[in-house]
Design a protein around this nucleic acid. Sequence first.
DNA 1: CCCTCTGTTGGCAAGGTGCCAACAGAGGGC
DNA 2: GCCCTCTGTTGGCACCTTGCCAACAGAGGG
Lengths: 210, 210
Amino acid sequence: MSQAADDRPPDAVVRRRLPPDERRESILDAAARLFEHQPYSRVSTVAIAREAGIARGLLNHYFGDKRGLYLEVVRRSVLLPTLEDLPTRVPGSMAEKVEVAVRWFLDSVEPRVASYLTVLGAEGVADDEEVAAIIRRADDLAAQRVLELVGLDPADERSLALVRCYGGLAKTTVHEWARRETLTRPQAHELLRDVLLFLTSDLLRAQPRG
Amino acid sequence: MSQAADDRPPDAVVRRRLPPDERRESILDAAARLFEHQPYSRVSTVAIAREAGIARGLLNHYFGDKRGLYLEVVRRSVLLPTLEDLPTRVPGSMAEKVEVAVRWFLDSVEPRVASYLTVLGAEGVADDEEVAAIIRRADDLAAQRVLELVGLDPADERSLALVRCYGGLAKTTVHEWARRETLTRPQAHELLRDVLLFLTSDLLRAQPRG
DNA sequence: CCCTCTGTTGGCAAGGTGCCAACAGAGGGC
DNA sequence: GCCCTCTGTTGGCACCTTGCCAACAGAGGG
C-alpha cells in the first residue's frame, strides 16, 4: 500500500532520517506554529505530525506526550535566552540606565512578538501550575537583572516584587503596541520609560546604594 | 438496576428536577471549581458531571459542548458585573479620585481572587481568540470607566490604551499580593495609587478638561 | 556485502466527546 | 384523584484523539 501509492503528495518526503536534535527542533517549530493560532485542545497531535511531516508516534518518542511537547514550546517562547544580552552595568544617570533597559526589552520582543504574546497573554481559565512555573522563573530572573542594571539591590524581596508588577505593565504595553496597535512604539517606549524611572527613583529613595 | 442499588452513595441524589436557571448555575459552579485547579484539557466532562451530580449528557444540553461551558465560566469570572459599583463621578482632587478607583479595584477583586487570577493569569501558549475577546471587552469597559471617574475624556483612544496598559500592572500586582504574597495589600495599594496618579496627571497635562 | 544500531512508522486499545432516542418528575385538564 | 402532556434528565452508541508498542528501514562499521 505504501509502494503502490501513485498520488503521493509531492513534498511528502518518502522518509528522511534526521539527527535527533534537528528533528526535535523541526517538531517544536511545527508545534509552535500551530499553537500560535488556536488553543491547546484544538490542536491535535495528528495536525502537528502532519505539519512536521512525520508520523504521529514520533511525537511521543521525542516528548513523551502532547503536554510534554506543549511545555517545551512554552519554554522556548519565554524571553529567557535573550536575557543574556541585557548588560549588567551601565554607566550614567538613572534615566540613562532605565532607557537602556526599556530599549533592550522592546528590541528583544519585537522580532518575536507573535510567540511572546501568545505565551504570556494567552488567558483563559486554567490554573496550569507547570506553565505558570516556567513563566514565573523567567519573570523572576528578568526582575533581578533589571535591578542589577539600574544599580539597586537585586536580592531585596520588595524591590523584586515591584519590578515584577512592572513586568505586567510591560507585557500589556507590548500587547497594546504590537497586537492591538493602539500605541506606536515610541508611545509604548515613553510609557515604559517614565513608569520605570518613577518606580526606581522611588526605590532608590527608600534603599540608597552605590 | 437503578432500584436494586443498595450501595447508592448517600448524596447521589436520586434524580432531582431543577428549573433550568438553577441547574445552569450549579453546573457553572462545578465547572469553575474544577477549572481553577487544572488546565482545560485535564478537566474531563465526566469529572464536571460528577462534580455537578448530573449525567454527562446534560452538559451538552445546556452548553452545547465542553468549550461552550468553558467560555461561559470565563465570562462569569471576569470583573464585568462589579463594574457597576464603580462610581462615575467623585468629587475632590485627582488624588482622591485615584484613591477611590484603586480601592474599588482591590475591594472587588479580593473576595474572588482565585477565579480572577486563574482567568487573567492563566498563561500558556494558545491564541484563543474567543477567550481573548471576552477579556478584551471587559478591559475596554474598565478603562473607560476609570477615565470617566478621574474626569478625563473616556473616548480618547490614546488615554484608553494607556489605562489598559495600567490594567496589566494592576493584574500582576494582584497576583503578587494575593497569590505569591510578596506584597501586602497596603503595599499593592500604594503602588497602584502612585502609578495611576502619575499616569492621570500626565494625561491631564496633555488633555485638560473640566 | 552483511549486520547492528537506532530513527521512524503504523495500527491497536483505552479514554474522552457529541449526539440522540428513551425515561420520568411536575403541573394542568377532566 | 387520575391521566396526559411538557420538558428536564438519563444512558449508551459512534466517532475521534491519544499513548503505547512491536515491526520496519536508513546509515555506518566490520
